[in-house]
């Protein structure tokens, strides 16, 4: 029988490769469109909502999260993700998708031990690394400020 290394080389040579030109282009376009929609909401809110800039950006975030969650619930977001890849995972709508999709999936195990317990199964690592890195950045910022 063929050796492990030799077989790995055979698999590598025979495996179809990702068409990166295509996937990068799709991710760029869809990610760009999502950001444009966010920017459009930002401009519209700035025009019509009497709030300061910080509150407007929070409002835009909330709107995009709502849209991501809604499209996930309607069964559309996974179809966008099929083509867009990281283009629809990286924006905040993708974050909403990563929380709503397990909540829907594990609803059959009940509200508490199914939906509530497992809704952060995908987003959990993002939240943990986000919190940890923000603490690290905060400490560096504090020390840098004290030194200066």
């Amino acid at each position: 029988m063929i050796g492990e290394k030799e077989y790995a080389a055979l698999v590598k040579q025979a495996s179809p490769k990702t068409n990166e030109a295509k996937t990068l282009f799709a991710a760029f376009c869809v990610g760009g469109v999502i950001c444009m929609i966010g920017q459009a909401f930002s401009d519209v809110y700035a025009e019509f909502v009497p709030l300061d800039e910080k509150s407007i950006s929070a409002l835009v975030g909330m709107t995009m999260i709502f849209l991501g969650a809604l499209l996930t619930g309607l069964g559309v977001y996974d179809k966008i993700g099929y083509y867009a890849g990281a283009g629809s995972i990286v924006p905040i709508t993708g974050f909403a998708n990563s929380i709503v999709s397990p909540a829907m999936e594990f609803h059959s195990e009940g509200i508490i031990f199914g939906m509530m317990a497992r809704m952060f199964g995908v987003a959990g690592p993002i939240i943990v690394s986000g919190v940890c890195s923000s603490v690290a950045v905060g400490v560096i910022y504090y020390i840098a400020g004290a030194v200066a």
Partner: peptide, 17 residues
Amino acid sequence: ERQYRFPLELGTQPTPT
């Protein structure tokens, strides 16, 4: 999908293999 991969509605892209 649930057993081996991700929730159905998660917007992931399948790998070429």
